[in-house]
Write a protein that binds this DNA or RNA. Sequence first.
DNA 1: TTGTTGACCTCTT
DNA 2: CAAGAGGCCAACA
Length: 142
Amino acid sequence: MISLQFPSRREPFYSMKSKQDKLKSILPSGKKDKSFFELVYDTARLIPKGRVTSYGAIAAFLGSKMSARMVGWAMNGAHHVSPSVPAHRVVNRNGMLSGKAHFATPTQMEELLAKEKIFVKDDIIIDFQKKFWDPAMELSID
DNA sequence: TTGTTGACCTCTT
DNA sequence: CAAGAGGCCAACA
């Protein structure tokens, strides 16, 4: 199912802090003392191949939609965590590859995306809205 | 310990 | 329209 929506500027149902506990139960690894970063990593690992999402969408999904910045910061450390995190599937809300400079080579992010049939022009993902995967829409939380 | 700095986003001048 | 500010939270000096 394809979500054609950007994260809405309306107050979304998932923005309530109380959802965090439910998140912890549906996300893979069972540790209870998850930091915000770990939640970010877990969510990112759920992004299907061939789909992308945005920092803000993950942040909103995790309960604080203003933490998009932290999601980016989390990705900064995503290279040396295990299991690996598909950081290339996370872009900013315009579909721009804002993080490509942090990959091993300047072209790696684009190449990884191309393998999943996601193509990029001028650092922007083509058909971003069709490739967009909103965790809040696709993962049912109650 | 305090301050600054981000792979961001939204609202306000 | 463009530009600024505020909010988030972890890392680092």
